[in-house]
Amino acid sequence: MTKNYKFLVLTTALLAVLVVGLGAYTRLSDAGLGCPDWPGCYGFLTVPDKAHEIAAVEENFPGMELDQGKALKEMVHRYFAGTLGLLILAIALYAWRYGKHVRMPVRLPTVLLLLVIFQAMLGMWTVTMNLQPLVVMGHLLGGFSIASLLWLLYLRNHSRPVPGGDPGARALQGWSMAALCMVVVQIALGGWLAANYAAAHCVGFPLCEGSEAFSLAEVFHLPMEHANYEYGVLSYESRMSIHLLHRFGALITLLIVGAAMWRVFKGAYSRTIKNAALAVGAALATQLTLGIALIYMQIPLLMALAHNLMALLLLLTLVRLCYLQKRKC
Rank of each mutant, 00 (worst) to 15 (best):
T128Q: 11
A282G: 09
E212T: 10
Y42M: 06
V233K: 08
L10W: 05
P300Y: 05
L113D: 09
H246S: 10
L134R: 12
Y25I: 07
Q119G: 01
L66W: 06
V135Q: 06
S148A: 15
M310Y: 09
L28V: 01
A169I: 01
M124I: 02
A213S: 15
V57N: 04
G267A: 01
E218R: 14
Y197R: 07
Y94I: 05
G123D: 07
M1W: 04
R271C: 00
A260C: 09
V17W: 10
M310V: 07
R170C: 13
M182G: 12
Q119M: 08
L108G: 03
N60D: 12
E59R: 13
E225P: 04
T272L: 14
L207W: 05
L66V: 11
A51K: 14
T46A: 12
H139N: 14
L131W: 07
A227S: 13
G23P: 08
E218N: 10
E58N: 14
N157A: 15
L301R: 07
Y94K: 11
Q287N: 11
L312N: 10
L288F: 15
R247Y: 00
R170S: 15
T110I: 15
A277C: 11
G63E: 05
A282N: 00
G99H: 00
V219W: 02
I256N: 08
P300H: 05
A198L: 02
G32H: 06
A178L: 15
I88Q: 00
G267R: 06
W151Y: 12
Y94C: 08
L189R: 00
P109K: 11
T11M: 06
P161Q: 08
A24E: 02
E209K: 14
V233S: 06
G168R: 04
V280P: 01
L305A: 07
P48L: 09
T110V: 13
N4I: 13
G249D: 02
R239W: 04
H77Q: 14
G249V: 08
L301H: 05
M261H: 02
L18W: 02
H77L: 08
G23M: 01
S29M: 11
P206M: 05
N308M: 14
F144R: 05
G191A: 11
K274R: 15
Q298A: 15
L278S: 10
H226C: 10
E58Q: 14
E218Y: 04
K73C: 09
A260H: 01
L222H: 12
G258F: 01
V57C: 07
L294Y: 05
V102A: 02
L316F: 04
L254K: 09
N308Q: 13
G191H: 03
G23D: 02
W38F: 07
M121F: 12
L284N: 03
P109F: 00
Y94N: 08
F214M: 09
M75A: 12
G69C: 01
N275L: 15
L18Y: 05
S148W: 01
V184Y: 11
Q119K: 09
P39L: 11
T110M: 13
T26Q: 09
M303K: 11
Q287L: 11
V20K: 03
K70L: 12
L115R: 00
A71Q: 01
Y94L: 05
G267D: 08
Q173S: 13
L244G: 06
T272V: 15
